[in-house]
Amino acid sequence: MASTKLGLEWLANGAANQTLANLTFATLNQVVQLCILDKDRTTAPSSPNDEDAYIVASGNWGTASSKAGQIAWWSSTAGAWQFIVPKAGWTASVLDEVDGVGASRQYVCVVTGGVPGWIQREGAGGATGSAVVTDATTARTLGLADNGAYIRFTNAGATAVTVPPQSSVAWGAVTEIHVRRVTGAALTLTPGSGVTLNAPSGGTLVLSSAMTVTLKRVASDVWDIIGQTVPL
């Protein structure tokens, strides 16, 4: 029988199971004051240190099933990755992301369709600005890691930016993403299946050189586009 919050196995009366007890302590060691080295990895690092913990961005990390959104930590004793399925409301500090005063950014777990995802806490970072991301590709599908980011598209070729549906990305209620077309041909905002993108008054979903917009989620699969786009 396991606890409901952390999934820790209870020891039976009179039990002397050192392995089970150690696993319980190891899990507590990870989730109490949850500190994550990186939340954007799609493959496991090749030379982890004992107890290193990550949030799996996507992929199965060498297992038979997807571990997306789960917490992966390395056990040198076992010589293998251990996985913890987080519950809605868990909070993690991501050590490789810091705000303007040097504090680690915090993310909260949300669960959609049984799959955990992570969004930045509301107001966490608003006073210190948005992370600047430079994208030199011509196609990008937005994801949870883009929440709050200021993405500058620099490739001169025609570019498409796709907003996937809630069914595939666990978008948080306060998600917003900033997009700038630095230079070059048109950048087109493309709705994924079932997604509605509300263009600005008199505008389209196309950005030409030097235009900037904010994509603001206002409901499940509904986004407002705020800013300047190519006129109708």
Rank of each mutant, 00 (worst) to 15 (best):
Q70G: 01
Q70W: 04
Q70Y: 07
Q70M: 12
I71E: 01
A72H: 03
A72Q: 05
A72E: 04
A72S: 10
W73F: 11
W73A: 00
W73D: 00
W73H: 03
W74P: 00
S75M: 08
S76Q: 06
S76W: 00
T77G: 14
A78C: 01
A78W: 06
A78H: 06
G79A: 12
G79T: 10
G79K: 10
G79I: 08
A80Q: 12
A80P: 06
A80T: 14
A80Y: 00
W81Y: 09
Q82T: 02
Q82I: 07
Q82R: 15
F83V: 14
F83Q: 10
F83Y: 15
I84C: 02
I84H: 13
V85K: 15
V85N: 15
V85Q: 15
K87Y: 03
A88K: 02
A88Y: 00
A88F: 00
G89L: 10
W90P: 06
A92V: 07
A92H: 02
V94E: 01
V94M: 04
L95W: 03
L95V: 06
L95N: 06
L95M: 14
L95R: 10
D96L: 05
D96G: 04
E97I: 02
E97V: 01
E97T: 01
E97W: 02
V98L: 06
V98Y: 02
D99F: 03
D99E: 10
G100P: 06
V101L: 11
V101Y: 13
G102R: 02
S104H: 06
S104N: 12
S104R: 02
Q106T: 07
Q106S: 05
Y107M: 06
Y107Q: 03
C109W: 05
V111I: 11
G113Q: 07
G113R: 09
G113M: 08
G113L: 09
G113H: 08
G113W: 05
G114H: 08
G114V: 10
G114Q: 05
G114T: 09
G114W: 07
V115T: 15
V115E: 12
V115I: 15
G117A: 11
G117W: 04
W118L: 09
W118K: 10
I119A: 07
Q120M: 08
Q120Y: 03
Q120I: 04
R121E: 05
R121S: 12
E122A: 12
E122N: 09
E122Y: 09
E122C: 02
E122P: 00
A124L: 02
G125I: 02
G125Y: 02
G125D: 03
G126F: 15
G126N: 15
G126S: 15
G126K: 12
A127L: 15
T128P: 03
T128S: 13
T128K: 05
G129R: 08
G129F: 12
S130K: 14
A131F: 07
A131G: 15
V133Y: 09
V133K: 14
V133Q: 14
T134Q: 09
T134C: 01
D135H: 10
A136I: 10
A136G: 12
T137R: 14
T137Q: 12
T138Q: 13
R140E: 13
R140Y: 14
R140Q: 11
R140T: 13
T141V: 13
T141P: 00
